[in-house]
């Protein structure tokens, strides 16, 4: 496993900085990003609002009103934030997260719940059974949550069934399993979406118990195994 990951830091406007490890999907890199994320969650920096991990980057939001108190010389607030982040990246050993859970996710690939499945099988000249097998055989990694509450970005989809995003988003039902490029993901709620829908899971992707309790089914780093279920099993799940 690699231990050093080259990075660049770029501003995301005037109130956030993104640490970018390259525009790529890589499991070691993801573990590294999660390691830094966990470190920053347990050691919050003064003036920092929150940090958000993504596939190969981590974005830190800061409060310029708080950080301005640390201005020395002609530094900008953005530079102060950058120095603080660099210090952590260079000096702190943010342990790579290595323990990941495996979660099994039932998916019903029935045409009625998979509006785009026929289009893909025609386009890719494969049978529906092949498509199901290609989608449900590999183990996927949850790289990040984003877009919607509890939406997990998973990778990587086998080359053979990769599809670009739809040109215009369409209405997508909660639980829909979509694919786009080398990613797959599940819509937690009804939403417009641009991914191709190939099935639906009966699983609830988040729980809102009370006003301070919210949990998501997926966690970044999870190893996901899909398995095919029938329409009956879906309805009675």
């Amino acid at each position: 496993m690699r231990t050093y990951f080259p990075y660049t830091i770029f501003p995301l406007g005037d109130t956030a900085l993104t640490v970018d490890f390259g525009n790529c999907i890589d499991q070691d890199l993801s573990a590294h990003v999660m390691g830094i994320f966990k470190y920053l969650q347990s050691h919050p920096l003064n003036g920092f609002i929150e940090c958000v991990p993504a596939y190969s980057s981590l974005t830190v939001f800061y409060n310029p009103g708080v950080l301005k108190k640390e201005i020395r010389n002609n530094e900008t607030i953005s530079e102060i934030a950058r120095e603080k982040i660099e210090e952590i990246l260079e000096n702190k050993s943010c342990a790579l997260t290595s323990q990941f859970r495996t979660v099994k996710v039932p998916v019903c690939y029935n045409d009625a719940l998979a509006p785009d499945i026929r289009h893909i099988t025609r386009e890719k000249k494969i049978s529906k059974q092949e498509l199901i097998s290609i989608h449900s055989t590999p183990e996927y990694r949850v790289y990040m949550l984003g877009f919607l509450p509890g939406f997990a970005y998973m990778g990587e989809i086998v080359e053979k069934i990769r599809m670009p995003r739809k040109p215009t988003p369409q209405r997508v039902h909660a639980g829909s399993v979509g694919i786009a490029g080398n990613q797959t993901g599940i819509y937690p709620i009804n939403s417009p979406g641009g991914w191709h829908i190939i099935g639906r899971t009966p699983i609830r992707l988040y729980e809102k118990k009370d006003n301070d309790n919210f949990s998501t089914f997926f966690q970044p780093g999870d190893i996901v195994q899909f398995y095919s279920i029938s329409r009956d099993e879906f309805e009675n799940y």
Partner: peptide
């Protein structure tokens, strides 16, 4: 350009295809 999804903010100007 085909980008991997990453974080955006209020004020971010995205360019659609």
């Amino acid at each position: 350009c085909e980008l991997i999804s990453s974080v955006v903010d209020y004020g971010t100007i995205q360019l659609l295809p």
